[in-house]
Write a protein that binds this DNA or RNA. Structure first.
Lengths: 245, 245
DNA sequence: ATATGTATAAATGTATAACATATAGACAGG
DNA sequence: CCTGTCTATATGTTATACATTTATACATAT
């Protein structure tokens, strides 16, 4: 019946003002906001209030703050992947998500990605996948075990990027980053890494030959293996909550 | 070679402390943080610094702040869909994500969901879907157009919930909520709503008969129709920047 | 009795002024 | 060319005071 009369807090109104200036192109990426003291004068508020507004804009990934001369608050292009990833990753850590759900979601999304690859992948994409495989092989020959593990995880990121869809990319990247972090806490022997590598190699082959279903199948087994290891390790603990940054 | 020795800003360290306390269950949803003044004493910093930390926790959806006696900062369960939605919507506004990508992601995820329904859905699940359809039918008979539109959107939420996977549920819910919001700004005639309803009805039938592929196909057309309307509408404007909350 | 007013205390919201620290740039000296 | 030093300008932090919001208790009036 009546509208809500209550005003937002002052610093929130300032956030809105600045956001609005960006949305209407009065402020563009690269531009610098006036110093805190000037903003305070402009808006007729105290520096404290301005700073609370800046904290919010900063966390939202809208501005970047540098100290010192020539420093200040600069409008930046939002790094969507980073922000979305943090959103997801916070939620995963604090929420009621289980390793099983994580694995499930990963499997399903990667299956979709494989289907998309069947439609969209170019020669260049396959090249990127092969390069990753070759890097891993080289690292193996050189005995650089740690870096090879990283390359193994990277393979899955390259895979999802072929979809060219930021939402899928970010979601899956978050899941993988989280799993990667959890795996860091588990002693992995050479054999595990080698198995993962072989699976990746096989998957690339199947993708190039167009046998998507078989590729999904191999990937499923590959992911489930990881799931078993993680579950064994973390079930003993307090669910996912031991997973700190 | 060397590690970065630079300390984070003080308020950031406080954020980390509090986040950590939550992740290790020292603070649980519903708990209240000490008043700002006490926190300042505990951490040995000023109240302003504490407040900057609280701003961040608040924006992150980790605490809720109430003024007045018995007020304070309360730990809350994160409302992932809400947060994710805001994240997505921000990126949409700033042009990092397109409506097309949103539609694509929605189509793929809903296709996954349909596959999962083939494996997991119980009689009760189909019951929920049918109930939604019946509610929509009733609202149609009663001429309550607006509420029928809501029920149409709700149908898709019910659908994804059958997956029982929070990651899929939250991601898709965010996408759908965002689209729903955008559609509010477009004049929808009776026919559009009726078409959506018919599609839903057909999809339920196909799901129950186990024809998943056909169900995906119908859903694809249904979603693409929406995409076309949204694109036509928003391309004419100042890109997506009119999409305000 | 029930509704309305009023006082109180506890918490957040905002303002002001000062000092601490970080950083780019200019400039001098080896 | 490298190194140190100075300086101006910005953010980071502290301290204190006052304003506003809100739950609660209690008094008052109808």
């Amino acid at each position: 019946m009546f509208n809500n009369i209550k005003q937002k807090r002052v610093f929130e109104q300032i956030v809105d003002e600045i956001k609005n200036a960006i949305e209407t192109d009065k402020l563009k990426p690269g531009d610098k906001l006036p110093p805190e003291m000037e903003l305070a004068k402009i808006f007729g508020v105290s520096r404290v209030t301005v700073r609370e507004a800046l904290r919010i804009l900063e966390l939202s990934g809208i501005i970047l703050i540098r100290q010192g001369t020539k420093g200040g608050a600069f409008i930046i292009k939002m790094d969507a992947p980073q922000k979305l990833k943090e959103c997801l990753s916070d939620h995963l850590k604090l929420g009621n998500i289980t390793i099983g759900q994580l694995t499930e979601a990963r499997f399903w999304i990667e299956s979709i990605v494989i289907d998309i690859i069947g439609q969209k992948a170019t020669k260049k994409d396959f090249g990127l996948l092969r390069e990753s495989i070759q890097r891993a092989e080289k690292l193996f020959r050189e005995g650089k075990e740690g870096e090879k593990i990283d390359e193994n995880w990277n393979f899955h990121i390259i895979l999802v990027k072929i979809s060219r869809n930021l939402i899928l990319i970010d979601t899956l990247t978050s899941i993988i980053e989280l799993m990667r972090y959890m795996m860091l806490k588990i002693k992995t022997d050479r054999k595990i890494t080698e198995n993962a590598f072989k699976a990746h190699k096989e998957i690339v082959g199947l993708l190039e030959s167009g046998d998507l279903e078989k590729a999904k199948e191999v990937n499923k087994i590959h992911i489930q293996d990881l799931n078993n290891r993680l579950t064994k390790k973390y079930l003993k603990r307090n669910s996912l909550k031991d997973v700190n940054k």
